[in-house]
Design a protein around this nucleic acid. Sequence first.
DNA 1: CCGAATTATACTCATTCGGAGCATATAAAT
DNA 2: ATTTATATGCTCCGAATGAGTATAATTCGG
Lengths: 348, 348
Amino acid sequence: MTNRKAHRTSADHASSPQDAPLPAPLPNANAPLQPPSRSGELAERNVLVDLVAVVVAVSHDEPRVLTLDDGASLPAGPFGSDARSLQTGLRDWVERQTHHPLGYVEQLYTFADRDRTGADGQRVMSISYLALTREQVERRAQAEGTWSSWYACFPWEDWRDGQPAVVREVLAPALTQWAAAAPSAMAREQRRRRASAAFGLDGAPWHDEMVLQRYELLHEARLTPESLRNVPEAERPAVIAPGRAMTGDHRRILATGVARLRGKIKYRPVVFELMPETFTLLDLQKAVEALAGRRTHKQNFRRLVEQQELVEETSEMSTTRVGRPARLFRFREEVLLERAIAGTKPAG
Amino acid sequence: MTNRKAHRTSADHASSPQDAPLPAPLPNANAPLQPPSRSGELAERNVLVDLVAVVVAVSHDEPRVLTLDDGASLPAGPFGSDARSLQTGLRDWVERQTHHPLGYVEQLYTFADRDRTGADGQRVMSISYLALTREQVERRAQAEGTWSSWYACFPWEDWRDGQPAVVREVLAPALTQWAAAAPSAMAREQRRRRASAAFGLDGAPWHDEMVLQRYELLHEARLTPESLRNVPEAERPAVIAPGRAMTGDHRRILATGVARLRGKIKYRPVVFELMPETFTLLDLQKAVEALAGRRTHKQNFRRLVEQQELVEETSEMSTTRVGRPARLFRFREEVLLERAIAGTKPAG
DNA sequence: CCGAATTATACTCATTCGGAGCATATAAAT
DNA sequence: ATTTATATGCTCCGAATGAGTATAATTCGG
């Protein structure tokens, strides 16, 4: 249980499939950087930099995200220059704030558009991170923030019970209308195609990782509350997409995190960061399904996990409520060293 | 030819496989951000932010990178707060500096470790980008910077003629020695495994996208000049890895870019950003091979490209020097809309 | 105590996909 | 005419994948 905590995985450059964990920090890259060639102007000093974290856990078959302000915002805080690295800065800060030890941490994206301004009109740059942890129920009392299912923010992303009604009844018609409202025939066709590809309309397949594109498409179609903030009452469209909006562009950041995680579980064994020490294969499957938002074939899931030797048996069996008791398994930490490949792939 | 320039692809959040191009910028996300909850301290204002670009092209069967200072550094410049977004800031700046129109642009990673300090000891944060372009030979005269093969920096990455001699003769022994020098038996085993997985030793397969892990492993083993900057003469190891070092951590940034691109060409049709308007299938294959650093089966490559309908025939044939003339093809821009999947995968 | 319900687990079958090789076509060079 | 080099079409095999069937071990409701 605590052994797991010592085995902090972290992949800062984690976008390529095969990053192995780096146990030790890199020694000495600390030669002073040359001032970049031909930098005529001075660099901008008046930029606020802060860190935003998408902290994910899974509990009760739901993917949860750590939120503040009653689900309205993600934990965020200033980037302190004392931190050794962004990684550790984020880790320390989140752990201090929330009393949740973080497992895997990876950088998501740096947001710095001009319209991101702080209280005094200053430009705010946010470096966002994805962090995986296990929801520690016993620590909840002292922890700050609340865990909420990310499907509260993105109801259209949960296909575990088939296509959600929202998609068919609200989004599809609204997007069709948006497409039809484009000025030129080509633009209409283009919008139609984008909507189909993103939301699996017109027989197109559903791609679970396209979370960000879907959110941005809804944003562009002005179907989100966030996109309507400066739009006068009169010009607002009739419908808006259901799902809880968030402060600033936090929902976009969340979408980025969800997209990244959904993509990642397919080729890297990161789910285990979200699992308890031991678990049944069904537990594991449920966790993957919760994250991916879609069902998987049970037998094939087992075959995949076992033939890839991601787990090892324990001698214990689950104390199941009903049905045949299942064996408890444990993640084989060795795979992090042995292989660079492998993941836990749902249908895709 | 110029049509292509108008079709600027850009995927800012480009780490998930399925990002569709977003032709229009998102409207109005410009509600003021709430100051992040519980941000007790003030954000750090004394951080220099600059942009670093990994600008890639392919010519003469070599993957090239735009460098300055005779190959010693990547183009970098201050982040001006006037830029609408980081994307456009980078684009404008690179195009102004180098007179190279950029095609696809995607954010790589934000570096901000404590030891990254500027001339006056100030902390420097670098937001790095990957940009794809076609090397415009005719503009070379006015352009600044030089194109150099990235294999000049990473000689061990080029497996097009089989395992490079460097790996077998220099790196493998040096890494073995490094592994053996670990304090404990477990650490030795761990180092051995990491080296094998990264460099394909002991029969392990070679993974072309593990560029960053390999570089960082060499760094950790102190086989790179960059890792020896603060190490006194006496303590330096006998061997260092061949390959041109770069300013600061630019070589690490380059490795990040190469890794990302190698990963990306397997599932997204980005190679075409590097190709001329029309090309033969062999041209395309050579480009992919140059990027991936490994050979592919010719017939299978053709099958893949054709069955995925990535290209369409033109009526013209190549004016080949020798052998049967090949048909010229053109990229089917429609696929960017139609599908979210597909790529051009070399052996993996 | 028995059977229904429920879950676990083993095994089979069909299809697809990726790697590798063979065969033939069309050009230039000698 | 022969050689050489490239282009292009086709086959074969094995691994991976999707989907279904069968059997085992429990709980639960009578």
